[in-house]
Design a binder for these strands. Structure first.
Lengths: 214, 214
DNA sequence: CCCGAACGATACCCATCGGTATCGTGCAGC
DNA sequence: GCTGCACGATACCGATGGGTATCGTTCGGG
């Protein structure tokens, strides 16, 4: 096995492109994008700068590709949670919350890659920014779908609340202002689901059903 | 008026230190910390690099001082909201949410200074990091106090939920995944308050009153 | 009136960064 | 066995970064 192609040295080494992406992942995640030089990535990947530029047009393209991979992992979490709780959108949402909650300990070190990257890349034309924004929009849309399927009252508002809470848990974990954020997060999401399942929200909701963006 | 000291040229010019801080504020906020050079700050402040280093030990110290000022502005918002609604902690919390909601349009351009800065400064020993973390911890504590005074059930959990939502609204506004975030935010905070005011939360809360982190 | 401190301007130092050019090497397929 | 090509290594380039040294000037208080 693993003998088809590429056995450059001893211990089965991944092809250069994979090693580069792995190294970039670790370094970008732990040190930030702008703090990490291409040279450093090359060393960590046990290759050279030239090899990186043979596989990626620019450093920005490498960053974008990395975020594309991270986004795919989050998408996979969505898929997994849907597969684990078919036809039970409420459990799917709780599964997502659990997924985020389980990631919080890692987040506390260096934070969410999307939040960090967007902070490091102010120009909206940056390819990585577009990857992030497209991913976030897609996730938001998918979450609204779950909330709708769950029969929640005002699914868009519920999805917004859940999104806020998931993002906020990561931020607050990273800046250390709230501990046990994982447990709290799960409870809060349960509360949001319950709140939007109850026949009528109490917060000055009228009976017109439109719920005027409350 | 404004003639006591400092009238270097014509149009009343602030003293160099203030101009430097103003310039740093604008540039750090719009471009990010690491993208902005000291030289650029000097030009924007209509002074020179040397003048900056006469007032601040290092660039890092300038960053920390800027964040100290921003933190003070948020503290002022807390103070103001307390003064506007004395003895009405629920209204105070809603006032805070309104304060954040009103800031969201600006946030959508470049995001929250704390979130961005913490993303740009991975080393926890950085002076600016300590400013941020101390500020966030203080805010969290103050918010718990408000929730307690409001007689909310499980005030720490309520404060965590509100914190998450406030932070998350900024993140989601910045990455563009949710629009009308301001209106949504206010409704969500109202919902959290209502949820924690109701005699017993529905989400599998038992009668022991401890509400096991839900 | 004069002296000292703050200020403005310029030039400089050294490190790092993204990106490129060049040359050598080892392996694959014909 | 030979050729082509991806790869490895090194040196280099221009730009920019934070930070310092050294000037002359200006302005305010004794």
């Amino acid at each position: 096995m693993a003998a088809s192609v590429g056995r450059p040295s001893r211990v089965a080494k991944l092809p250069p492109r994979e090693r580069i992406l792995d190294a970039a992942e670790e370094l970008f995640q732990s040190e930030g994008i702008r703090r990490v030089g291409v040279q450093t990535i090359a060393e960590r990947a046990e290759t050279t700068k030239m090899a990186i530029y043979r596989h990626f047009e620019t450093k920005d393209a490498l960053v974008a590709e990395w975020l594309r991979i991270v986004a795919a992992e989050y998408q996979a979490a969505f898929d997994r949670v849907e597969a684990e709780h078919p036809g039970r959108p409420g459990d799917q949402i709780l599964g997502l919350a659990r997924f985020i909650a389980e990631g919080l300990p890692a987040i506390s070190h260096r934070g969410c890659p999307f939040i960090n990257s967007i902070a490091e890349l102010p120009d909206r034309s940056h390819p990585a920014r577009q990857v992030i924004e497209k991913h976030k929009a897609h996730q938001a849309h998918r979450l609204v779908g779950m909330c709708t399927e769950a029969g929640l009252r005002d699914p868009e508002q519920a999805a917004a609340a859940i999104t806020f809470v998931l993002e906020g848990a990561q931020v607050s974990t990273h800046n250390g202002s709230i501990d046990q954020a994982g447990d709290r997060l799960l409870g809060i999401v349960e509360g949001i689901l319950a709140h939007h399942r109850s026949p009528l929200g109490e917060s000055r909701a009228s009976t017109d059903g439109t719920a005027r963006a409350v």
